[in-house]
Design a protein around this nucleic acid. Structure first.
Lengths: 196, 196
DNA sequence: TGACTAACCAAACAAATGTTTGGTTTACTA
DNA sequence: TAGTAAACCAAACATTTGTTTGGTTAGTCA
């Protein structure tokens, strides 16, 4: 019984991940509504109805992707920031990690910035909560910066997020800039203005 | 004959604008795909099929909105920037105009930043062209800034656009900031860093 | 008045959508 | 080897979608 469950979990996880990967890729490229269950099924080589053996609905598919995406980007973000001591070095590394997350090949993180919570009313609150979970990292990062007194930390955080988020629209893997270059450039464009 | 056409144009324009206004509002709030022709029809008080007397398709509706939006935002942008002499004052006013455009009540301009060209393959090229038409204004604005030699004008322009664009996601009309405040704050956060 | 047309209605259509249902295969276990 | 359950197929279902078609109304013009 227990052993049987273990085997099931293993098998299920294998196809589960393939499904999540394929769905995430489509969601990141085409968006949520423009991606049909038939698209996803075709990508993993099964029939549309078969997806419902693994996930109860399309909405829940996105929810799972959101969760995986937040876990991944948070891990990447912390790995890039925590080793550094200087807050401005942290900003530089953090923005680089952000731009990387919205442009990298792995689609889980990209979905978070491509698909907005309003598109899935059923899970809107949960999706917002997931986003907040990540954005708290940026909030903390800004909080540690020694800023001029006239700088609004709230607005600065939203500016950082917006600049990074927007990169997904124009970033090209074969382009002139790497995600790292972009993130670090953005942080340089801010530092001397707002720094104390 | 000519007179008849004139009358037709007048009448048609009246309902035409009502349709565009309603469609733009829905597109700006819910997005393109999430808005059905039935939604739009209900908003203007007619049946879905009747829309096709005024516009040949849903895609063409968006195209017309895009055009109107670009004309409006370009006009607003130039009206805000041209009277000013100092390039940095122009940046401040330009970013304020940008944030206003993505958040203001009139929905035409908001649609441009909400609905991406890829969502309407039929008119993708034309939509991109319309966007470029506006973005050229920001390009010119950045071009006039006296910048440090290490500043990449291309990246700076995209950062400005991203920060402004992103405001549509969190701006609240009853919130703590006006569109003007936000835009001017953003420009301040950049100026001293990149200025020569 | 009578013809004409702009503007709309009423109803349907074909296609695509998310999802359900019942059956079938495959592999492991007792 | 018989049985069990995971994993999937095959086919349909109900709904929503953009759109079309033929008819109707109201106002204009000669």
């Amino acid at each position: 019984m227990v052993y049987t469950r273990h085997v099931k979990a293993q098998r299920s996880n294998s196809r589960n991940e393939a499904l999540l990967e394929a769905a995430a890729h489509r969601f990141a490229v085409q968006g949520f509504r423009a991606t049909s269950m038939r698209d996803i099924a075709r990508a993993v080589g099964m029939l549309p109805g078969s997806i419902y053996y693994h996930f109860p609905s399309k909405d829940d598919l996105l929810l799972a992707i959101y969760q995986a995406g937040v876990e991944q980007i948070t891990a990447e973000f912390e790995a890039a920031v925590e080793p550094l001591d200087d807050p401005w070095d942290q900003l530089e590394a953090g923005m680089a990690a952000l731009v990387l997350a919205v442009t990298e090949e792995s689609a889980y993180t990209r979905v978070i910035f491509k698909v907005m919570p309003d598109e899935v009313p059923k899970h809107r609150k949960k999706l917002v909560a997931f986003r907040d979970l990540f954005e708290a990292n940026i909030r903390d990062l800004v909080e540690r910066l020694p800023l001029q007194p006239w700088v609004d930390k709230h607005l600065l955080r939203l500016m950082i997020l917006g600049a990074g988020n927007h990169a997904q629209l124009w970033f090209s893997a074969e382009g002139d800039y790497s995600a790292d270059e972009i993130g670090r450039a953005f942080s340089r464009y801010l530092k001397d203005s707002v720094s104390k």
